[in-house]
Computed example of a mutant assay.
Amino acid sequence: MGKEEGVSHIPKAGEDGRFGWIGLLGAELWFGFYWILTQASRWSPVYRHTFKDRLSQRYENELPGVDVFVCTADPTIEPPMMVINTVLSVMAYDYPPEKLSVYLSDDGGSEITYLALLEAAKFAKHWISYCKKYNVEPRSPAAYFVSSDDAVDDDNKQAADLAAIKKLYKDMENEVEDAVKLGRISEEIVIDGRDLNATDVEGCVLPTLVYLAREKRPQYHHNFKAGAMNALIRVSSNISNGQVLLNVDCDMYSNNSKA
């Protein structure tokens, strides 16, 4: 019988596997040394947090303008109430409202979507104030109302305000849904320019809200969402010209106002 070799056997010079053995040994030594070095951070881990309120107070005058683009194309596939819930959720961002602009691109050119946005603009005067007052999350009305009863607890004042805001939302929803059932709006809508002094019920400035419907011609391809984004950038550059652009799908509301 041959002599049994131990695990400490080092291949001799010229023997197969010598360099592989040396390489594996070096790797084991290196990772062992690395493991020892990393134990210090594991014994006493350090967690870092950003204090957004302090940053906002310190750099509020230096914060960039933000333009949020919401795109929709078909009011039958993308119901107007779903679209405006997305719009309302981004309008209620925890960001200086004078530096926040929300643009709705309606490639369907639907008068019902336009009506819904006008109703949302009226509702926003109450909704944004309510969100800031009670720091609610998420800030999409439809999503918030699902769990709002649990969030209110025994606060009678908030419960009363919640009931009032729910009624306003229901009135808005009925107005929009009636138009959806009719397939048209019941009366002509005329908007005279931009309200530079728009405020909520507490007197705070509201974000800029813009409706955009592109002109389409059969002989030219409209390039779908890419064309809508191109039009939004050109229009926003003449209105708010924000340094930061954020694109949000109309069926994806914001669930974190501080994000």
Rank of each mutant, 00 (worst) to 15 (best):
A164W: 11
M252I: 14
W43G: 06
E78W: 03
D153S: 10
A259N: 13
G183P: 08
R194D: 13
L55S: 07
A120H: 04
A159K: 08
V244L: 11
A164R: 13
D178V: 03
A160L: 13
A73V: 06
V152H: 11
N256C: 12
D249M: 05
E119W: 04
A40Q: 07
D178L: 03
W21F: 13
H126W: 15
F224A: 14
L209F: 01
A213S: 13
E188I: 01
Y130V: 10
A231D: 03
L55W: 10
A27Y: 07
D53C: 08
E60C: 10
A92Q: 07
L182E: 13
D171M: 03
P218N: 09
A143P: 02
Q219C: 15
S240I: 08
K157R: 12
T86A: 05
T86R: 02
A228T: 12
G203Q: 01
S237P: 00
V7C: 14
Y114S: 05
H9S: 06
C250G: 13
F51K: 08
Y134F: 00
S254M: 10
S129R: 02
V146E: 10
N156G: 04
P141C: 00
L162H: 08
R54D: 03
L246M: 09
A226H: 00
D107V: 05
N238T: 12
N197W: 04
K125A: 04
G227M: 01
